[in-house]
Design a protein around this nucleic acid. Structure first.
Length: 283
DNA sequence: CCCCAGTCCTGCGGGC
DNA sequence: TGCCCGCAGGACTGGG
């Protein structure tokens, strides 16, 4: 499930397209249903083909190709989408082939096993409403401790659930939410409005530590093997997971309690009941 | 404001 | 051995 570290790794893997001119965007019908292209495939191609890619950005969990006329081509991989500049993991789920001229990279692909991802062309006037601050919160790596607390600290929602809300904070998904709360020693069911400044500082510190380490490791490739880097390689942060999908195994930090799995907002949460007690720690 | 269930989609694994 | 079903969850929507 691409979250901030995986999408940032995709962005970095795609930097070689900068300066390239889009020669062709070719939808590939290699699955039951075609990938969602917005607006229509025909209009997206008409708008983007022939344009030069000026810059590759990331906004939350989206990769944004900035085009010369101020428009943008946005890749939102959601669950199983990938951007590739090398051979795909599986030919049968290739969705889009983009051919370029004048850049180091001459071809890249959008691959998506489950096809829940979305590729969108945004006209300049759509960009603020679709990618701006009212729709997507500040990036998880840009936010200060005070801003984190001010944005999340008023809601009564469970902290783990609130961390997943992209309007509050962009980039954190289900995997890294559990991992960072374990590192911050905060119980996932703690109500946001009852967390104190010390806990928000710990969450902020853990947020940065976990996301930056995961970027260095090029993301997490889980057992299903879906996530790959742009060069079709495994990430390695899965080897550093402390709680995610580790139900029943001893916590690597305290060595005594076993990792517990619960469900919050219909999503799995993992935590250590000893390292992340419900009551505020005195230390 | 918040919560919940349903929707999209496909591969995988448990159970029988 | 084969088939069915539930599960995985990011983003969104509609109803309460």
């Amino acid at each position: 499930m691409p979250e901030l570290p995986e999408v940032e790794t995709m962005r970095r893997g795609l930097l070689g397209v900068e300066g390239g001119r889009i020669e062709a965007i070719l939808p590939l019908r290699t699955a039951q249903k075609p990938i969602a292209l917005r607006p229509s495939s025909r209009r997206l191609r008409a708008a983007a083909e022939g344009q030069t890619i000026q810059r590759v950005d990331r906004i939350g969990k989206r990769v944004v190709l900035r085009l010369a006329d101020g428009s943008a081509l946005v890749f939102e991989p959601r669950m199983t989408g990938l951007l590739l500049v090398a051979d795909p993991p599986n030919q049968s789920h290739l969705r889009l082939h983009v051919r370029l001229a004048g850049a180091r990279v001459t071809d890249f692909w959008y691959w998506d096993r489950r096809g829940l991802g979305v590729v969108t062309w945004l006209a300049p006037r759509q960009i603020e409403s679709q990618l701006g601050a009212t729709r997507i919160g500040p990036d998880a790596l840009q936010v200060s401790p005070a801003e984190l607390q001010s944005r999340l600290g008023k809601t009564r929602r469970d902290v783990k659930v609130a961390l997943l809300d992209q309007k509050y904070l962009a980039g954190v998904g289900n995997l890294y939410a559990s991992e960072l709360l374990h590192r911050a020693r905060v119980h996932p069911q703690h109500r946001c409005d009852r967390l104190g400044i010390e806990e928000w500082r710990r969450i902020h510190r853990a947020l940065r530590q976990v996301l930056l380490a995961a970027i260095r490791a090029e993301g997490s490739t889980l057992a299903d093997g879906t996530y790959r880097t742009a060069l079709n390689r495994d990430g390695s942060y899965q080897n550093r997971h402390r709680v995610y999908q580790k139900t029943g195994t001893p916590c690597q930090v305290c060595g005594t309690a076993n990792i517990v799995r619960i469900v919050q907002a219909q999503r799995a949460t993992f935590y250590c009941p000893r390292c992340q007690p419900k009551r505020r720690q005195s230390s």
